[in-house]
């Protein structure tokens, strides 16, 4: 019983909420900025978007390493199919957490706009400038984002169902400062 109430580790909780917060900032910013007509403001928002996204990519590395070297708390009792969906969602979320910013970085390289982190640290281009590839990667970034959006929706719905309907500690054990 005690293993069911075990909380996530501090680093796992910190990485979870930090990355969640950054993704939920980058996502609406991405949707908003690309509709804007070209202006200094648009250039700024694009840069902020890229910096937030690159931060997600940067944080993803220690997060994945932590996850691979630490066993998360055991799942709470639930039907096997629910457990499979929850686990599958988590794995796909890890994948997209990596692929979404990576596709953005590749797109920037292909479009000929290098990413300069916080306007000071130039990040190498991954591929050379190519208009067709840039347009393709923009589509890829968009589609991956909608997949990520759907997964986050499912993930949040699952967490809330556990919290509100099942009244178990699934959500609480991932919350900071919880008991």
């Amino acid at each position: 019983m005690s293993s069911y109430t075990q909380r996530y580790s501090g680093p796992a909780i910190a990485a979870h909420w930090l990355i969640a917060f950054l993704i939920l900032a980058a996502f609406p910013l991405g949707l908003y900025m690309h509709e804007l007509p070209l202006s200094p403001n648009k250039l700024k928002l694009y840069s902020y978007h890229k910096w937030i996204g690159m931060t997600v990519l940067l944080l993803f590395v220690p997060r994945l390493l932590w996850r691979l070297t630490h066993t998360p708390p055991k799942a709470l009792p639930m039907p096997a199919w629910q457990h499979r969906i929850a686990e599958g969602t988590h794995h796909l979320l890890y994948l997209l957490m990596f692929l979404v910013p990576l596709s953005g970085w590749l797109m920037s390289s292909a479009k000929g706009f290098q990413v300069v982190y916080f306007g000071v640290l130039p990040i190498p281009d991954l591929i050379g400038k190519s208009e067709e590839l840039g347009d393709l990667l923009k589509e890829v970034h968009e589609v991956l984002n909608w997949v990520l959006f759907g997964l986050i929706g499912l993930h949040v719905a699952g967490a809330l169902k556990h919290h509100i309907i099942d009244r178990d500690s699934t959500l609480r054990r991932m919350l900071p400062f919880g008991k």
Binding site: Y46, S47, G112, F113, Q114, G119
Partner: peptide, 8 residues
């Protein structure tokens, strides 16, 4: 230089 990004 756009937002610190050199653009040729």
């Amino acid at each position: 230089k756009q937002m610190g990004v050199p653009v040729p």
